[in-house]
Structure formats: structure tokens, C-alpha cells
Write a protein that binds this DNA or RNA. Structure first.
Lengths: 273, 273
DNA sequence: GGCGACCGTTCAGAATGCACGAACCGATCG
DNA sequence: CGATCGGTTCGTGCATTCTGAACGGTCGCC
């Protein structure tokens, strides 16, 4: 694990919408490294285009990151597969649908399509992160992680409470994740914001790994009466995306680890690399 | 210049739309480093979320890059300032307008608004790179670089010819950049694609540095009759963006280097090396 | 207007962490 | 069933990075 690269990545992660500009001294202070080291990191990253210098000698994120991100999106089967299905979902329900992945133990929202009946959800947004324990997509994603990973995440970030409904104990979380894994979907019942609910379902890639989660966000008063229909809608949509990605299940919510390969020999071999 | 970080950045740059997936052995071969080294780089980058693993053990770009890119866009005054002005430009002319920056000696397109009268320009596109010597925006950006930088870029990448009009000699380039710098705008007269022209102008930040370029792309048969009006339109639009960014010029296309602050002792003033 | 504090940058010595090649393991294909 | 290819691991020696102190420019305060 090359520590120099780790530190470089740490430096990149410092740059947030709230603090998009950093100086050598600040970085050194926050990371607890000597100024000269921080300087070397920043300077190298800037030379590589991952950072750029401001007129006053400080640093901001560089355009290379934009290029890399575009390459990622361009080559990402996930977004290509999910977008049209999300559009149909929004057209049918008029609610907001979101697509998210797990990054570093947190939920990263990758796509968000807003419906005409939808209320504006300010907390989540494309490119934004949220803790995983409180949202529908977060619980889906955590549920398909090894429990030891989940524990490590929780120990690192804690279980921040957004509303009285937010999961606040590890035991509660363990039970909830178990349920989510078995039933194949998750609810967020006003756990991140009072009055806001959502139903979320996992998206599998061709190897059976859960790589993303999709959700329909609905105001509470429209959620509870329609829970069943919402659930089937999001589960079905997520299943269609998974199939688009090359995941052909025999029995659906079954054995989260590696379902294919050994089960019925012929099937897994037909998957193109 | 931390070489480990340099190599990590090199690895990231390998991932392109054409080859979005790499294995350890390939990376080691292309970079000329031992497999174990490539493995360490890839593994670390993946652990940091800058790469992700595919089901078959190879590597693709990771979602962290998407997050960083969104942070960059969110905090970028350039795009915020340019977009509305580009929209008005498109509304007025019905032609395509583009915004580009210089990354690593090449033009990186950052925004592209297509007009209703416009022909589809396939070569350029958001997140795509092109050589700088052949496009309007590229010539504008090069013109405001120190000539030694330009030389280094040309020596590294050569002067690829797209059409008979493409600049193909260093002397030709030097003269053209000199003209562009003095007149404050550049034309691309079918230099990248036969039948396609554009007019481009520089965008300055508050310190007087050229940080981007804007262009109007027009089919040749509409370009030549309207060249004068196109020129004033794009120059004016770019000037408005610059002013939005805090650049208040006294006399406009004048003294490319560092106009404000100090006149005589001006060379080493703003950014120390 | 001059003094001081702050910040980015440079430098040289010291040890730590990376580079390297060989060996391991698992999958894939003939 | 064996051979080849790809990803992974491991231990050692050397070079690279880390460290802390000093430099020089800029800004703000007195």
C-alpha cells in the first residue's frame, strides 16, 4: 500500500465544495505532515493536472479530474443502462429517482432524476455523499457488504442521527441489514428527513456483485399508502438494470456472495468478458 | 517531484474511453515497470476509490473521480460564469459554442452548447481532448503560453495534420500565435475538419492569466461571409466572462503577460515558482 | 511607510518505504 | 490433465522520500 499515493489521495479528498481551495500550510496542518511534504504533494499533483494553482499560489482541483470523470461515465455500463429505466420510472410515478454507489463506506449519488410531483431533496445530489446507514440506497449497499466492513465503517464514522427514525445502534443496523438482504429491498421511512421516505433496490453486475442501488423518493403521505406498488416498481426497475448489465439470476434474492459459476455449469460461461 | 505520485497519475491517464479497463500485466508493460510495482499502484489507487476492480480482477476508473469532478465543477467560477453567456450566444446565433482549457499541452473541452442550426461536431466533445495547434481555442490558449512551453508541447506531440489547412510547421505556428496574441482572437479556417470554421477568444481570470478559451463553430459557407460579426460576438462574450471572473482590463488586447499589478517589474510578481 | 507575521519554497542529512525479481496460486484453454 | 497467463505475495537492498530549519516574497497591522 504505497503511502505516498495514499497521502496524495488524501490530499485530493480535502477539496470539497465547502473548501475548494487549499494552501500548503493548511494541508500540512490538517494531515499532520511537515510543510515540505505537503508542498511536494501539492506541487506534484498540480504538475500532473490533478490540481491547478490559483493566482495567489494556492491550489484547486484540476481539469484532469473532469476528463477522467467523463471517461468514467463514458465507459460506465451502469449509467448507460440505468438512465433510460430511471427516466421511465420518473415518467410513470412523477417522483424522484436516484442512483448511488458505495465509496469509502459512504453513499455517493451518481444520478438523480427529479419528477414533477417531487419535492426538492436538498441533502442528496449528484456528486454528493451521505452516510450509508440512514438512506434506502445506503442500507441496500451496506447489506451486501461483508459485516466486518460494515462494522469498520460504523466505527470510523459513527451512526449520525438525522431524525428520530435514524438507525442509531449497531444491533439495530445489523438486524435491518439482514432483513434488507433477505427481502431484496430497503425502505427509508423518514430516517434522513422527516416527511421523506424512499424504497430502494440493489443492482447487480454480471458476476453477481451489488455495484449500485436505485431508489424512488416519495413524500411520506404518498409513501405509506402506496408502499407495496412502490416496492415492486423499484425492485423491478433495478432488476431490469441488472439484466442489462449481464446478470441473469435463477432465483432472485439468494446467497449474496457469488451465486453463479458453480451452480448450473453452462450458464456462467456464456457471459462475455 | 514525488515519482510515486507521478506514476500513479500516469496510471490514471492510461484509462481512456477506448481502453477503460487495464490489468496489472498490461500496465506494467506499457509503463515499463515490474509487475509488482504496477500491482502496488493499482491496488493502492483502488483502495483509495480512484480505481475500482472489475469482477475479473482488472481495474477501471473509480467513482471517487466522479465525486471530485463534481466538486471541481461546483466550485468552478469559470463554468458558472460562462454557461449563461454561452447560452445567449447559442440563442442568438444558432451555432455551436464551446469552452475549453489547456491540460497537459492539449485542448480539453469543458462545455459544449449546440445550436439548432449547427452541424454535429463529432471530434470535439465535453471531456474530450484534441491537439492544440489546429483549433481556434487551442491557438488562443497556446498563444498565451510562454513560447518555450509551446515548443516543448510541439516536440512531444508533433503537429498532426487533419486537413490541408492544418498548421504543420513550427515557424507557421510561431507566426500564427503571435498574430493571435496581438489581435486578441483566433480563427480556425477548416484546419481540423474541412467545411468547419470557428472564431475563438481568450478568457482571463482576475490576475490577468488566460485560463480558458471560448469559440463559435460555424460551417464554412456561413463563416466567411460573417467573419467580422462572429469575431466581435465571441470576443465580446469572452470579455463578459472575464469580467464576471473579476478581470477588469484597462486596455484590452494589450500586453499578454501580466497586465495588472505592477507594470515594470512585472515578470516574477504573482506566482513564485 | 516600515515592521512583523504568514505562507510558499528550498535545501541537506538521515532512515524509512519503495522497487525489484522470484515464487505462489488460481483460472482458463488446449 | 498439464501448461500458460494473469493477479498476488514476500524479503532484501538501495534510493527516495521525510524531516525540520532557513529563505524570500507578500500582506496586513501598527
Amino acid at each position: 500500500m504505497l503511502q505516498t499515493v495514499q497521502k496524495a489521495a488524501q490530499v485530493l479528498r480535502l477539496f470539497t465544495p465547502k473548501q475548494p481551495e487549499w494552501g500548503v500550510t493548511e494541508v500540512a496542518a490538517v494531515l499532520g505532515i511537515p510543510k515540505s511534504g505537503a508542498h511536494a504533494l501539492l506541487r506534484t499533483l498540480a504538475a500532473e493536472g490533478l490540481l491547478q494553482r490559483t493566482p495567489n499560489g494556492r491550489y484547486r482541483l484540476g481539469w484532469s479530474l473532469f476528463e477522467l470523470s467523463q471517461t468514467l461515465l463514458d465507459s460506465s455500463a451502469l449509467l448507460r443502462a440505468a438512465r433510460p429505466i430511471m427516466e421511465r420510472l420518473v415518467a410513470g410515478w412523477g417522483e424522484t429517482t436516484q442512483l448511488a454507489v458505495l465509496v469509502d463506506g459512504q453513499v455517493l449519488y451518481v444520478e438523480k432524476l427529479q419528477g414533477d410531483r417531487a419535492l426538492e431533496i436538498v441533502l442528496s445530489g449528484v456528486g454528493k455523499r451521505l452516510p450509508a446507514h440512514c438512506s434506502g440506497v445506503g442500507k441496500v449497499l451496506l447489506a451486501h457488504q461483508p459485516w466486518e466492513n460494515v462494522l469498520a465503517i460504523v466505527e470510523r464514522t459513527g451512526l449520525v442521527s438525522f431524525t428520530p427514525n435514524t438507525i442509531s445502534s449497531v444491533e439495530q443496523l445489523r438486524a435491518e441489514l439482514e432483513r434488507v438482504r433477505q427481502q431484496g429491498f430497503a425502505y427509508d421511512q423518514e430516517e434522513v428527513m422527516v416527511g421523506l421516505c424512499c424504497a430502494a433496490a440493489p443492482i447487480y453486475d454480471e458476476s453477481g456483485q451489488v455495484i449500485a442501488a436505485m431508489s424512488l423518493s416519495v413524500p411520506a403521505y404518498r409513501f405509506y399508502p402506496n408502499r407495496q406498488r412502490l416496492t415492486t416498481a423499484i425492485v423491478d426497475a433495478a432488476r431490469r438494470v441488472s439484466e442489462e448489465l449481464g446478470y441473469y439470476q435463477e432465483a432472485w434474492p439468494w446467497e449474496n456472495g457469488k451465486p453463479s459459476r458453480s451452480r448450473s455449469s453452462g450458464l456462467a460461461t456464456s457471459v462475455p468478458t
